[in-house]
Amino acid sequence: MITQVAKDQPEPATEPATAPVPGAAAVPAPRRTQRVSMAHVARLAGVSSQTVSRVSNGHPGVGEETRSQVLTAMKQLGYRPNSAARALKRGEFRTIGVILFTLATTGNVRTLEAIAASAASEGYAITLIPVSAPTQDGVRGAFTRLGELAVDAAIVIMEVSLTDVEVLPLPPHVQVVVADSNAGDRYSVVDTDQAGGTREAVQHLLDLGHRTVWHISGPPESFAAQRRVRAWRTTLEEAGREVPPMAAGDWSAESGYRAGLLLARNPECTAVFAANDQMALGLLRALHEAGKSVPGDVSVVGFDDIPEAGSFPPPLTTVHQDFAEVGRRCVAGVLRKMREQHAPERGTTLVPTHMVIRESTAPPPRG
């Protein structure tokens, strides 16, 4: 037997009425195809839309009971504030752009990680803007894309010196902090104390009794590598020591290995300062293959103190740089610029380094 439903019989409701928050009147729930609005929350909570807005924006001028009532209604309805509309109304997007040349280096990755964590703790998101090439055109292109995005500020993590870039198309409202580079007097800079860390590394080897210190440098276009080369040379000159020929690397373990094969042939080389830990790792391999003992024949110091440095064979003496602190100070710097109305400060903030002495350094061999 087939039972027909009369055409004029009312269809069952597709959505039940929403159970009200205690103290508020019952209201129909929005249909599934309808976006939950602030007005829906206000009706369910029994308050005004203005009160919902104040709770949504974290405004302190709402009583705890009312705030709890509004939050319960938001949860019950699945309401999510329209962040885009709020951004347009406030004139800010709560987003920080990060212009970055490469993610291939340990320092950049760890600094970016700290920036993301610090920004999130302040209620900001980050937008990553890669540089297509380490050239003036590549840098300008990244800044042009920055101006097309909804960001309030920018942090620049750049291998090259920004003083080499003549014109940067930067929107006037976007505040900028530069990490580990040189921006002249145009922007604030947060940098690791490259020179101080290098001086400490070289002096450590000289204090052990080594006559001089060889160096495997980073790539010539890198600002950090240039600073370390200058500090290495200056420290030796001030100590009245010979400055040996420099071996050029590119931050990779493979480049440290190639340089190490050449240094291993030189019997006068008893101490090497590598500009980063990855190149020091390649150097250790080359010395091992050449039958050289570390530190018995050659002492090795790196720079970075990557998490694996203590597990190198032997554990690596290195310069520790605080990437997390660099990232935190970059975020704090751009937020301070955004919040202060007076002219933003410029100049460089140096984050200190310190030596971590392990088993890869010792006095030179006798005789």
Rank of each mutant, 00 (worst) to 15 (best):
L335D: 01
P365Y: 06
F143S: 00
S217L: 05
H173E: 15
D277G: 05
A362H: 13
V176K: 00
N82I: 09
A231N: 03
M38E: 12
E289I: 11
E345Q: 13
T361G: 05
R94F: 14
H215V: 11
V189D: 06
P10M: 11
E325R: 15
L263Q: 01
R145K: 13
E159W: 09
Y79H: 06
H342P: 06
P220G: 08
D297F: 09
V36T: 13
H215K: 02
W214F: 02
I115R: 02
D305T: 11
E166G: 14
T66Y: 14
A24M: 01
M279R: 12
R35G: 10
I155H: 00
P172Q: 02
T317L: 01
S181D: 07
E268Y: 02
A247K: 06
G97N: 03
R90G: 06
I155S: 06
E11D: 15
G141N: 07
A225W: 00
S299T: 15
P363H: 15
I357P: 12
R86C: 10
T111Q: 02
Q50P: 08
P314M: 12
V351F: 01
A42S: 05
G97K: 00
A119Q: 04
H215N: 09
R199C: 11
Y187G: 06
M355R: 14
V131G: 00
A290P: 02
A26I: 15
A201K: 05
T349S: 11
G327I: 04
V62D: 02
E237N: 07
P171R: 05
V319H: 03
G260V: 08
S56A: 12
S53R: 09
R199G: 14
P295Y: 12
R241H: 13
E237L: 11
N266C: 11
R90W: 00
L350F: 09
A362Y: 02
C330E: 03
V139Q: 07
Y257E: 04
A25C: 03
A275I: 04
F223S: 02
G58C: 08
G91E: 04
A120G: 04
A116Y: 02
A264V: 01
V202D: 06
L149R: 06
V177K: 01
P344W: 09
N108K: 10
E237P: 14
G46N: 01
T106C: 10
A84C: 05
I129E: 01
P134F: 04
H173S: 14
S37Q: 12
Q278A: 13
Q321I: 15
N82K: 03
A84H: 11
G147N: 04
A324Q: 11
A25Q: 14
I99W: 05
P364T: 10
T14I: 13
P28M: 02
I216S: 04
P12V: 03
Q4A: 08
A179D: 00
V178R: 03
V52P: 07
K89C: 09
G61R: 08
R67I: 11
P20M: 09
E200D: 11
N82P: 02
E11I: 06
S83T: 13
R31I: 05
V213W: 02
L100Q: 00
A332H: 12
F101L: 10
S311L: 14
T348D: 05
